[in-house]
Amino acid sequence: MLLMVILVASSFPVGAVIADKLPPAVTMFIRFLMAALLFAPLVFKRHGFALPKPAQLLGYIVLSLPLVAFFWCMFEALRYTSALNTGAIYTLVPAITAIYAFVINRETLSPIRASGLLLGTLGALWIVFRGEAERLLALQLNHGDLVFFIGCLFMAAYGPLVKRLYAGEPMEVMTFWVISAGSVWLFLLSLPQLPAINWPQVDPSVFVGALYLAVFTTLITFFLLQFGTVKLGATRVAAYSFLTPVFVLLLEYLLGKESLTPLLMVGAGCVVAAMLLVQRDSQTAS
């Protein structure tokens, strides 16, 4: 899960480079299609080519919907709102996941785990707003924020649904078919825009960036997320997302774009303490 968070954090600077060079739906389609095509030889070599049973295929289609809905909502929301607003709203995902996990998986939320989720949310918000109360007070919600919040509601459902729909198949098979189903949805979303694109004139960095995102922040992260959810539970896995702004902060520091002030370290300390609370409570419960 730590590796997954590091990879997710690395996707932000890469995504920023290519975000405005193609329509968002098209960029996501290329990313998912690359991931599916690259993963296919490994899956078919190990497990042979066989279509899933109808019930399994339906499950993979269901699992692909929250991912596609989240990414579409994210790019659509960023037309109207800021990265700061979306970062603040995304901190609510672990708490929403805990609610879904109770409804879908009957995963209970103890007082210790609830305290950890609250502390993690506050710590992540602290980092997002750089420890400045003025930024928080100046936050103005708009149409884009509502769209992104709807996307977060979809994303929070992904982990609990994985836990519910996993039928014991090899995890790489599940990952492949979920990504493939997502590619179909994204193809349908981007279809109206594809004919208008002058492909020879597309900046090569788009394909290089999309390839990185396909391998490291689609294939590997989806595999790790699904594996971790089955082994650890949806709430415990979701709590790791609190670390995303911490790793983004560290990455920006290494790139010379951010300084590690004492205020920011307070937020990072809250996140680490929250992680320890959630993980310790989960281990005690198990």
Results as ranks from 00 to 15, higher is better:
residue 20 D to P: 07
residue 49 F to A: 13
residue 260 L to P: 12
residue 51 L to N: 02
residue 264 L to W: 07
residue 263 L to F: 08
residue 69 A to M: 14
residue 235 T to P: 03
residue 122 L to S: 08
residue 25 A to C: 09
residue 208 V to S: 11
residue 286 S to V: 06
residue 18 I to K: 01
residue 155 M to A: 15
residue 34 M to D: 03
residue 207 F to K: 06
residue 206 V to C: 14
residue 184 V to N: 04
residue 49 F to I: 09
residue 145 D to L: 03
residue 245 P to M: 10
residue 232 L to T: 02
residue 167 A to M: 12
residue 242 F to P: 13
residue 221 T to Q: 06
residue 160 P to Y: 01
residue 112 I to S: 08
residue 169 E to C: 07
residue 202 V to I: 09
residue 137 L to V: 11
residue 43 V to A: 09
residue 40 A to M: 13
residue 31 R to I: 00
residue 152 C to G: 12
residue 68 V to T: 07
residue 11 S to V: 01
residue 155 M to E: 01
residue 138 A to I: 05
residue 121 T to H: 00
residue 230 V to L: 08
residue 61 I to K: 05
residue 79 R to W: 09
residue 150 I to A: 15
residue 68 V to K: 09
residue 57 L to G: 07
residue 168 G to D: 04
residue 177 W to E: 09
residue 95 A to S: 11
residue 117 L to A: 12
residue 254 L to Q: 11
residue 49 F to P: 10
residue 201 Q to Y: 06
residue 53 K to P: 07
residue 94 P to D: 12
residue 33 L to R: 02
residue 196 A to T: 07
residue 33 L to Y: 04
residue 74 M to G: 01
residue 163 K to M: 10
residue 242 F to M: 09
residue 192 P to L: 08
residue 266 V to I: 15
residue 193 Q to R: 14
residue 172 E to V: 14
residue 285 A to L: 12
residue 48 G to K: 08
residue 149 F to L: 14
residue 90 Y to F: 14
residue 247 F to W: 06
residue 93 V to F: 09
residue 3 L to F: 15
residue 108 T to P: 13
residue 243 L to P: 15
residue 74 M to C: 02
residue 166 Y to D: 12
residue 261 T to H: 14
residue 196 A to N: 12
residue 251 L to I: 14
residue 64 S to M: 06
residue 81 T to H: 04
residue 137 L to I: 10
residue 181 A to Q: 05
residue 226 Q to C: 14
residue 16 A to F: 15
residue 64 S to L: 04
residue 2 L to W: 14
residue 64 S to A: 13
residue 248 V to C: 04
residue 282 S to E: 14
residue 149 F to I: 11
residue 13 P to I: 00
residue 150 I to H: 07
residue 123 G to P: 00
residue 53 K to N: 13
residue 229 T to G: 01
residue 142 N to Y: 01
residue 17 V to N: 12
residue 220 I to A: 09
residue 3 L to A: 14
residue 212 Y to T: 07
residue 272 V to W: 06
residue 121 T to W: 00
residue 115 S to I: 06
residue 33 L to G: 05
residue 163 K to G: 12
residue 41 P to K: 05
residue 277 L to F: 03
residue 117 L to C: 11
residue 71 F to D: 00
residue 246 V to P: 13
residue 200 P to R: 05
residue 80 Y to I: 06
residue 151 G to Y: 06
residue 7 L to Y: 00
residue 36 A to D: 10
residue 137 L to S: 14
residue 108 T to V: 07
residue 259 S to N: 15
residue 34 M to K: 03
residue 217 T to D: 01
residue 248 V to D: 00
residue 43 V to Q: 07
residue 171 M to G: 04
residue 285 A to Y: 05
residue 71 F to A: 03
residue 197 I to H: 09
residue 170 P to A: 02
residue 5 V to N: 13
residue 243 L to I: 10
residue 126 W to D: 00
residue 275 M to H: 03
residue 135 R to T: 03
